[in-house]
Amino acid sequence: MEKIPILKMGKFLLVTIQVDLYDRLALTLEEDLIEMVFKTGSKGVLIDISALSIVDSFMGKIIGNIAGMSSIMDAETVVVGMQPAVAITLIELGLPLSGVHTALNIEKGMALLQSRMKADLDDDENDGDD
């Protein structure tokens, strides 16, 4: 069965979706990714969707699920590289993906995750009882 590879890069996981995302594949990705977050203890997940020519409500839901599930496992999700046409369509569809962080490309997404982790550490240092 087809699978979307999940790469571990330091503290983060990187998923690059390069194929047509049919529903079963998206669900498998959701499972695998959450499993990997648990196994590796990663603090951040980067999902590169720059090769995706559409994101419909089902894929949007999967992305939202991944973000929500990672978040309760203390990992942040950043969706990177969304095509302009896809962004416009998602807004028109009524799906602003509110719970999900976004970045222009992998590099910026990585920087975002790093800065958020740093901010978390700073917070911990400042008020230890958090």
């Binding site: 969706v79 990177v80 416009i88 807004i91 602003p96």
Partner: peptide
């Protein structure tokens, strides 16, 4: 609002 939200989806 749509334009602002679409910009956010792009990561800006």
């Amino acid at each position: 609002i749509k334009t602002v939200n679409a910009t956010r989806l792009m990561g800006a």
